[in-house]
Amino acid sequence: MTVRLDDASPAHGGKAAALGALRRAGLPVPDGFVVPAAVAPRDLPGAVAAGSRDLARRAGGPADAPVAVRSSATDEDGAHASAAGQYDTVLGATGTDRVVAAVAACRASAAGPRATAYRAATAGAAPGTPGPGGLAVVVQRLVDARTAGVLFAGDGRVVVEASWGLGESVVQGAVDPDRWTVADGRVVERRTGSKRTRVDRSPGGTTTRAVPPSDAGRPSLDDDTVLRLAALGRRVADVRGGPQDVEWAVDDAGTIWLLQARPVTAALPEPAGHGESAGVLRGTGASGGRASGPARVVRGPDDFASVRPGDVLVCRETDPAWTPLFGVVAAVVTETGGLLSHAAIVARELRLPAVLGVPAATDVLRHAGTVAVDGDAGTVAPA
């Protein structure tokens, strides 16, 4: 009722298939197993228990070691649509009961509002339509990350974004991450972000805590590790046959682990130079294009009802639960987040202009009226 990750195929969804291919190629992917979509709910406890025992025999350690539980839908991590962040992920689950609950939560998320809204926006599916082929679930040993993030490997360059702790801070857009660009085997650009929070494993799953000021302003990786990541990213792209977004983690021993790889569905914007203009706010151009509309500050789900078609969404950060708004608004502006966050990936797929990492945007633009967003230049200005 489970499949070893080494044996995963496209029948087990995009994420499992990619991880299986990378393990077979000898790349450093944490071991795990797949719960196929066909396993009935009543059989999940037995399947998870058996899979966990088998994993413990192969990987060593107890059967109830902490794991990462991730969706692997057949319409996820594909060449044309990533579904980045649209299905649930549960980190730090321990014991059969908690892992079974995590598997069930991943499965249920396939019919949730963010996944169905994403499918409607990217594939024309009717809202509420479940993904084709059901949803398999990957269970992997959790990497207790010292530093983690995402890299883009393709078009002659590798872009790496990183922050302290587990990678959720970066993919959820909760921090302004560090960023490096590697070309011709060397680091050609560095940018240190303001990494104010971090996510780490805790007995109940994960905990978010503040980053000490001494760490918030210093790089979370050294250049040697960045170059090692870039080399691994290029190998992933070679194995998978094209540019890739890769989630990764570095443990306390300095070992790099690859956690996920998906085809790049929309190219990164080219870096833009910044001139100075009065009244212009600047951030990271995460999704190209230009759009204008009324600035609509949204501080949480309670404000969703205030959003109107054509508004410019202005918020501190966007997590995947905000995806339904992406089909309504004209552009997105956030205070935190990087080029490789889930919000940025989805915005690029939807051709929605987005500027991320604009300091104090929710306060500055609260009464701004109509604004113009330039996702290529990374600017927000009065219209």
Rank of each mutant, 00 (worst) to 15 (best):
P219V: 05
A49M: 04
P177W: 07
R299G: 05
L135H: 08
A377W: 09
G254R: 14
R24P: 12
G131W: 04
R235E: 10
D7I: 00
T181C: 09
G165Q: 01
V138H: 04
L340A: 09
R316M: 01
T336M: 07
A210G: 07
G78L: 15
G61E: 04
A237N: 07
D222C: 14
D184R: 14
G310R: 12
V99R: 04
T181Q: 12
G46N: 11
L22N: 10
D374V: 12
C106F: 01
A377H: 14
P353F: 12
A153L: 02
R308H: 06
T129E: 13
G375E: 10
A105N: 01
L281P: 07
A286L: 13
A8H: 07
G156A: 09
S163C: 15
L19V: 09
R107T: 00
A347E: 07
P324G: 08
V160W: 12
A174P: 00
A125M: 13
S287R: 14
D75E: 15
V99G: 02
P353C: 10
P127T: 10
A50D: 06
G20S: 15
L325W: 05
T74L: 15
A249K: 07
L22Y: 11
E349T: 12
G92R: 01
T379D: 04
A278W: 15
Q86H: 08
V239W: 05
P45L: 09
D184W: 08
A361F: 11
Q260Y: 07
P127F: 11
V175K: 05
R98W: 01
L339Y: 10
A79W: 13
G205P: 02
R198K: 10
I345V: 15
